[in-house]
Nucleic acid binder design. Sequence first.
RNA 1: GGCCCGUUCGUCUAAGGGCUAGGACACCACCCUUUCACGGUGGUGAUACGGGUUCGAAUCCCGUACGGGCUACCA
Length: 509
Amino acid sequence: MSNVRVRFAPSPTGGLHLGGIRTVLYNYLFAKKHGGKFVLRIEDTDQGRYVEGAEEYIMECLKWINIEPDESPANPGTYGPYRQSERKANGIYQQYAEQLIRDGHAYYAFDTPEELEAMRQLHRTDANPTPQYDHKLRKQMRNSLSLDAETTKRLLDEKTRYVVRIKMPENETVGFTDMIRGEVNFETSLIDDKVLLKADGMPTYHLAVVVDDKLMEITHAFRGEEWLPSAPVHILLWKYLFGFEHMPKWAHLPLILGPNGKLSKRDGAKYGFPVFAMNWTDPKTNELTEGFREKGFLPEAFINLLALLGWNDGSEKELFTLTELIHQFSMERVHSAGAKFDYEKARWFNHEWIKLLDADKLTKAVVPLLKAEGIETKDEDFILQVIKTVRDRCTLLPDFVTQSSFFFKAPISWDLPAVKPKWNADKEKFFHLFAEELDATPDWQSAFIEDAFKTIAALQQIKPGELQLPFRIMLVGGKFGPPVFDIAAIIGRKETIARIKSAVKAFSE
RNA sequence: GGCCCGUUCGUCUAAGGGCUAGGACACCACCCUUUCACGGUGGUGAUACGGGUUCGAAUCCCGUACGGGCUACCA
């Protein structure tokens, strides 16, 4: 199977939250697994308006998670255009809409927004809170089915604004096989006459997705479960326009849920976790939505946690590289129920990846954060060593700053309440002797430093345990970090002695 | 309201008619560690409910309840 073409069209506001990216991921994994192409169509409009910077944002997100589309605006093949904003230009949707009208599957509707609202007002009851423009009501509206041919022609000649609506059959069962859910059926009598072409000439999603998928020769179409109710419209359009034999196989992916239903952009701010891949600032409102990248997630972890939210390979394995995911992925193993997003587990994935990732790669990710804190990062060997010794205690990338800054700079302050109460002249003397001994130690290694420490402690008849905490606080400033003697070994003889001396002074004041 | 989808520990999930329903996150305890972590061992904890079918049901069927989605000239 090498002719698979899967398509995904992320939009800037809705498309790149967790659910959207997982959909991209699954599209990508499926295409790669089956040797096919992953084609990206950019939804750079929102509510019909062009969104500044959307395309760049989307492409950067995909680059971050290392998913490069085989075809996209930046990397076109022969099936473009790849931008939502280019859709209207070629007039192709208009052409298909007119074909549907000629064949009796669609019609012109001249109703103004006010008239539509009036209709809804009129028919709204408790039993029917959302009246539909459907086969029962369309006869009462102003359209080419209710109006005579002459009037229709006159309205069109007068350039009256119109939309094209699908003419839903009155009594048919429309069904299809979903790759995840199996057979799904709908009664057309209950479905409304969806708008296919808007008054401005733009297609709605319903027309666009069918026409695009055909023109792009898409074989598999995966999207969120929220699209399931409109699937019958798309099935019917395929039947009318191109025939079922060309229709892609569908899969409706389960939703990713927040604490209250479908995960929304707002949930992030509300519950303190990111919902977008990267920071996104809405150009109109200037509102910032936080991203996983900026929060300190590794792309490897992000992909991993997303893939496992609703899918597993049947074993107990939880940690997968992108390559492994491509090998193992199968749409049949995607869970059909929605998954509630658990930020704690997401953090766990990142922690695992921080422990797992190649140290050089990890260093590359951490260095910019250290730089931002004004930490000098020229000595690569030194940084690598530091990162290796602190990685186990870091969950998010910014943890590296707090966990390692003392390797680069002496502490600015010490946790005095932790030492002062038990500080005395004997201990002060010990550290004087210890500093002298360190100055003379031939080899500067963790084990030698520890030996010196214990020997002098024995000589002075102080338990080493009572001295380790003060020593740690001298080097680190607080009660955290890797083993003290390792820290001393890494920061070096001169620096260790200097920190002991300045701390002893402060402790004895 | 109508339509559609769904329902296994608090959360993500495994088990596709047959062992004491398995794992992971989180939580708790212990061990390791004279810091904080990592790690190790163990523990608490689930098949929504009611009917069928069957020798046998988490698994198949029906109903109920609950949850979610959709119901725009948004996607």
